[in-house]
């Protein structure tokens, strides 16, 4: 049985001066140790979700439970220690004047003794392969490197959950890969729960589970395979489908029998290879 680590129950949220609900009666669970992708076009409510999850905003209706604690004004500081967030803009979350200062920032806030801080800063920077840049200033780093420092800052606090709030959308392909790969390795090693809020479908394809948001509501929830079989519907929602799914579709139209829509190119290549042998 999968343990649920975050629960949303009938959550609704409305920004001041806005008619429409940013989130409307949203309920779902996030399970311990899973990689959950929340996808949706810009304005679908997915970023609001991130803000609610660590108490930067509070829902008008419904309740959110994180690690068994109900999210409230009193509990947010404890919850924030368990949830680490990496935001979209690499520059606007870099607080320290150098890499090490930035990683230490969260530790300082939580009153960690200095000797331990030094250790943790070093360890977490090594984990994201930024330990050679200890004294580097942020304007000498690439976007991907800054985001890795942000991840180290989160990691140093030893959270159970990491939220990537469109953390790769401002990066170039290389930076994107760096960040996703870093998080993937960390997740394996520390059995973290990862919530990635994104509109990059290739990134979402690698998740364990996907939630599709539309107009502030959960539109569909399922495994990547289930979600990407929605096909045209996804494109109508302003999203896209991964390349391998498009490729599978094209082959089917050309009359090649395939057992399913493939999410990985390797699998598709293998099936094509087998089908050739059977011909």
């Amino acid at each position: 049985m999968k343990e649920s680590i975050v629960t949303l129950k009938e959550v609704s949220f409305q920004y001041d001066l806005q008619e429409r609900y940013a989130l409307n009666n949203v309920s779902f669970n996030i399970y311990e140790g899973e990689w959950l992708a929340i996808v949706g076009h810009n304005g679908s409510g997915k970023s609001t979700m991130a803000k609610l999850l660590n108490g930067l905003q509070f829902p008008q209706e419904g309740e959110i439970t994180v690690c068994g604690t109900l999210l409230s004004e009193e509990s947010i500081w404890d919850i924030r220690r368990k949830i680490g967030m990496v935001f979209q803009n690499p520059d606007n979350q870099f607080v320290g004047t150098t890499v090490q200062d930035d990683v230490a920032f969260g530790l300082e806030n939580n009153g960690i003794p200095r000797e331990e801080m030094v250790q943790r800063v070093e360890d977490s920077l090594r984990k994201v392969k930024m330990d050679k840049f200890l004294h580097q200033e942020p304007h000498h780093l690439s976007g991907g490197q800054k985001q890795r420092v942000a991840i180290a800052g989160v990691l140093a606090l030893r959270p159970s959950i990491i939220i990537l709030d469109e953390a790769t959308s401002m990066l170039d392909p290389r930076g994107r890969e760096e960040v996703v790969e870093t998080v993937r390795l960390l997740k394996e090693e520390k059995s973290l729960t990862v919530i990635s809020i994104t509109h990059d479908l290739e990134e979402a394809a690698k998740a364990d589970r996907i939630i599709v948001m539309n107009k502030g509501e959960v539109f569909r929830e399922g495994t990547p395979e289930e979600i990407f079989s929605m096909d045209e519907q996804l494109i109508q929602l302003g999203l896209d489908i991964p390349f391998s799914v498009k490729m599978s579709k094209a082959f089917r139209q050309k009359g090649i029998e395939l057992s399913k829509h493939y999410l990985s190119e390797e699998e598709l290549v293998t099936e094509l290879w087998t089908s050739r042998c059977n011909m």
Partner: peptide
């Protein structure tokens, strides 16, 4: 920037 920075700082436990 200031707004986003404030949010990021709060998320990292600054009070």
């Amino acid at each position: 920037r200031a707004e986003e920075l404030a949010i990021a700082m709060e998320a990292r436990g600054y009070r």
